[in-house]
Design a protein around this nucleic acid. Sequence first.
DNA 1: GTGAAAGCGCTAACAT
DNA 2: ATGTTAGCGCTTTCAC
Lengths: 346, 346
Amino acid sequence: MARTSRFSGNVTIIDVAQEAGVSYATVSRVLNNDLHVKPDTRERVIRSITRLGYTVNQQARMLAGGRSHVIGLLVPDLGTGYIGEIMRGVDEALAAAQYDLMLYTTHRRKTKESAYVASLTQGMTDGLLLILPRDPGDFIFTLRQRHFPYVLIDHQGIGETESSVGAANYQGGYDATKYLIELGHQRIGFITGTMDLGCARERLAGYEAALKEHGLSVDPKLIQEGDFLQPSGFAAAQALLDLPELPTAIFASNDVMAFGVMEAVRDRGLRIPEDISIIGFDNIPQAVQVSPQLTTIQQPLAEMGREAARRLLGLIQEPERPYAHVELPTQLMVRASTRALTEKAG
Amino acid sequence: MARTSRFSGNVTIIDVAQEAGVSYATVSRVLNNDLHVKPDTRERVIRSITRLGYTVNQQARMLAGGRSHVIGLLVPDLGTGYIGEIMRGVDEALAAAQYDLMLYTTHRRKTKESAYVASLTQGMTDGLLLILPRDPGDFIFTLRQRHFPYVLIDHQGIGETESSVGAANYQGGYDATKYLIELGHQRIGFITGTMDLGCARERLAGYEAALKEHGLSVDPKLIQEGDFLQPSGFAAAQALLDLPELPTAIFASNDVMAFGVMEAVRDRGLRIPEDISIIGFDNIPQAVQVSPQLTTIQQPLAEMGREAARRLLGLIQEPERPYAHVELPTQLMVRASTRALTEKAG
DNA sequence: GTGAAAGCGCTAACAT
DNA sequence: ATGTTAGCGCTTTCAC
């Protein structure tokens, strides 16, 4: 039996129906933009709705089989700025479609909460956006098996049966390297990201391709593995600076590692960019806050979020829509951490 | 009539009841930890639950009047790092309590969506966490009027009838200023935050108090208004550097503005900290990424999130719990952007 | 201690 | 074009 419902504003569809002098199914039709409602009936219902201050009860709607108008966003640990940018785009697209956002953090899944995944897929959300899932294997398998709509953000290489949006990582890696080569650099150190991530592999591939296309050989000693975090950038740069023949430029697979590189270079008493040029990847807000400002490859993060959200919404509307991998263009942002190689240093 | 329910895993409480040979009310009791269930009945039910892989349907539970096990988090624009840290703490506390997180962004409310607030309060969420709401007036009024549980994060000064958690802004402002004074600085520029925010006012108050307590006068010319964003820090610093008598130190009300100050100081050809000491507030991750590393006041952001979430959960359990404002201590982080005033500069 | 049954507010057939 | 009605899966009285 009815409990005292928690809050006051309990105007239901039935109250509206009474007010408007129609059946409550008609009200439902109006709410769901059903075409088969006479204009003035619709008019009358809408007036009653506003007069009574009615708002739909999402839970009831969900339970009855409608859409929840919530989409889930699964993110790895927050607070990198990187995620924030993507979220900004997601939120924007969702707001436009009157969708709400449920936030799930990846690390939780490690725990035994199977309820976690259940909550995701049991109609609490209409679809799922996954940012850079680390070990997406079985999780995504479940999603696919249930025909649950989802879109991957910044994660390529799982298969061709995924909808995903990412950045042009290969092209970005290529562009950065080419830019450095055109500045006259020949010994260009490269610091990779976590190599089980597609984006990391693609950036490396772009780097190698640019080198080869310009007749330069790929020197394995100039390639150091990193993990996208600052300390690894620092360590990798140290290794690079310990080489008998110093690189004249270092390309880090993301900005955060580039900051580590800056630190290491300065520790050695070398100047940026006079002695060593540095280039990053991402163009996070901090890139302009460091000194010298960091030359980097811009990822269209907010746009990626926006696009992913739009695709997901499309998938929800039309589940049979074909899969597609969208790759948004990156852009070279030239700033102060790179400069042309002077003759003497050649 | 039943639609084909969207996904396969539709084990309901009824299936479990059948399996276990009990009525489904009993299963519900087990799920809700009702005491009146014989231990071995409970045991049997639990076994059926695991065997069938049953998970509760939150929507149904909500509709029937139960808890949604979702809390809403209302944030201003994302991507500052500041929010990310708080969210980390919130998520942690929520995970521990098996709660999910619904994210709402403030800017949306500007739009005509009254459904937005409704969604918040109509049982979709059990409670609300508000980070630094900008114009919280009527919004909070609605919440309070509906007796909807909520906790404010980093926002003081609305009234004494709020539960809120914040940082010791006054103390932080005081500590930073005192530290500078002890280093020998006498002309200390101050850049405020958005002054309609309690935290901004408190930091200023702390600054003024420290000055007075050390027998220094508060010079209005040394106080510039900012808005917590980098450009305003830059502009305010320029104004400060245009003063006939230069300050020897500048205290910005947050780190982001402090970065703007650094920029302005360098633009003038002055060195940090040799010519001017700079101190910030927040200790965001970037504070150690800039050069020189920024001396600042650490706000326990994650801890604030954690504490706020815990309080909210408490409030949900026990709505009559008295209001309380919790103030978490800040801490001075001495780094490289400040130094003792040398004699000549006195 | 356990079962029966009435909703929660809505959507989507199915009638008319 | 509109009304009628059967659930969606659960919580919670109320009986027993």
